[in-house]
């Protein structure tokens, strides 16, 4: 059965457009849900909501700073879910967090809480295939799509297994490294996008280091779309709000649609 996340992304892809998934660290500021709505209105196909963790080892300085700020505001998974109640962004929401946050609550309870908060997918980057079976089962039972990641070093045979098990979309990590703004798109981005597209017809989104509309166009060429995180969080950390976030997202939307 295809969930809300995957069916939305497939439908939009079939409509002929490249997919755009901006990220926001949940609880970053008092008005973060307004930022989220503004990003949806500006043309996001889905939105990734970071649930901040104290030790984000896959994240560079920008998202580390955003996580630290959200935690310093007293953000917890529970407060973040409460913030989201009653918010209908009009696009699917995908959580991104680390396994300890899931593990502490317990797979089934956490998946249930995501579903209750209106979040239909989840990305847990430190949960590789070897460790993800129980989370995949618990999230499926709660109607939450467990998005799995592939990396440039993932061998072919493994890539196929990950794509087979991933739900919602397949997250193709563009480069070997952590999140953060970059001046160019890694050569590995096109390679991993093509390799992934060759083995699955699930939506394939490229993420990590995509910082400008031009880079988004380049990275989306061989994939179905992009995830944009650090560059957007930089704007919010520097004092931007819903308007600045919307302008940023719509500049990406226009470039991808052109």
């Amino acid at each position: 059965m295809t969930g809300y996340l995957e069916s939305t992304l497939r439908k939009n892809r079939e409509g002929g457009r490249k997919l755009l998934v901006p990220y926001i660290t949940g609880g970053l500021s008092a008005d973060w849900c307004e930022v989220l709505r503004a990003m949806a209105d500006a043309g996001a196909d889905a939105i990734e909501v970071g649930i901040p963790f104290s030790d984000p080892v896959m994240d560079g300085p920008t998202i580390q700073a955003a996580s630290a700020r959200a935690l310093a505001r007293g953000t917890t998974p529970v407060s973040l879910f409460e913030d989201l109640t009653g918010i209908d962004a009009g696009v699917p929401l995908v959580a991104m967090t680390y396994d300890n946050i899931v593990h502490k609550a317990g797979d089934a309870r956490f998946a249930g809480e995501l579903a209750a908060a209106g979040i239909c997918g989840a990305i847990i980057p430190d949960l590789p295939l070897e460790e993800s079976a129980s989370w995949e089962a618990a999230s499926a039972a709660a109607g939450v799509e467990a998005v799995l990641l592939v990396a440039p070093v993932t061998p072919d045979e493994r890539l196929a297994r990950i794509c087979e098990r991933s739900r919602g979309f397949v997250y193709a990590v563009s480069r070997m490294g952590i999140t953060g703004e970059r001046v160019d798109v890694a050569a590995s981005a096109g390679v991993i996008a093509k390799r992934t597209k060759a083995v699955t017809d699930k939506p394939v989104l490229v993420g990590f280091g995509i910082s400008t509309p031009e880079q988004a166009v380049e990275a989306a060429a061989d994939a179905d779309g992009v995830v944009v995180a650090s560059a957007l969080m930089r704007i919010l950390l520097d004092g931007g709000g819903p308007e600045e976030a919307a302008a940023f997202v719509s500049s990406f939307r226009s470039a991808l649609d052109a």
């Binding site: 460790e131 592939v150 990396a151 990590v173």
Partner: peptide, 20 residues
């Protein structure tokens, strides 16, 4: 092969580190 000591241990790393 799962790297477990009873219920502890394992291999909770990003995909990029799994081959290594």
């Amino acid at each position: 092969a799962d790297g477990r000591f009873g219920e502890f241990g394992g291999r909770f790393v990003p995909e990029a580190l799994m081959p290594a």
